[in-house]
Amino acid sequence: MAELAERPGLPAPTPGSIDEAKRQKLLELVRGRALARPTDLAEDEVMVWPSLVVVEAVSAVVFTAILFALSVLVNGPLLDRANPNQTPNPSKAPWYFLNLQELLLHMDAGLAGVIVPTVALVAIAAIPYFDRSPLGVGILGTSSKGRRIIAFATVYSIVVVVGMILVDEKIGRGTQFGIGSYMMDHWGATEFMTGVILSTIIMLIPIFILVGIVKAIFRPTRREIIIALFTGFFVTYWVLTMFGTSFRGHGQDLTWPWNLPLTHG
């Protein structure tokens, strides 16, 4: 009974004839103190002060120290005054958009710069409405199978994305591996058919293959398929960003990072 008074959220096991409100009043009378004092801790609970506040304070101090040290040691970049008549080569967007700029080299600008990111954001926002099972909440990667799927999707995405960039570069950047340019030359395909439709298909194929392989190897739940897809997104974002920041030089040609002029930061 004492336990009950401390956890008012729990349903009463035997309400009997006395209604709940009355029962609680009686309890209060018997024990001579207010119900559910905020300080009554259950087994698995801790006081926010000090247990959480201390974590926050320490991480704030550590983070401030790191930021301070970095800011003393490294100056933010400031190049020459803006000059509309002097286009730097290469010109680059801020680093977190360089993944889109990388896509832009391979397909239609509207597809790469607007449709792909919009679809990605909407898909991410929609995840909780597809995966509603509470299984695995609070466990990193859901299960050991989930973690193996993460590892697999990571390796798969790195290999596929790097491979696709290198192959497109080799065959002719923006020719959809030569298929697009072939369609244009021989079948009179339009820019729209190659840069948008064909490019979309080329992007979807590895995604379907990823899901297919994961299904075949892991017999995944819906949550685990989404884990594979999210991992694919996450890894692709960073791989494309790496290409954009560190491997694109003059004329957006592939180069090594140490040959780059300072164009972002």
């Binding site: 970049p77 005054r81 286009t87 730097p88 801020p94 509207g110 790469a112 710069g113 607007v114």
Partner: peptide, 25 residues
Amino acid sequence: LPWDQLAYWAITVGTNIGGAAPIIG
């Protein structure tokens, strides 16, 4: 805001990406 070459051209590239949006670009 710094209005240097980095700022100017990064925003040029960025806003061009936005400008490539179908129909409303």
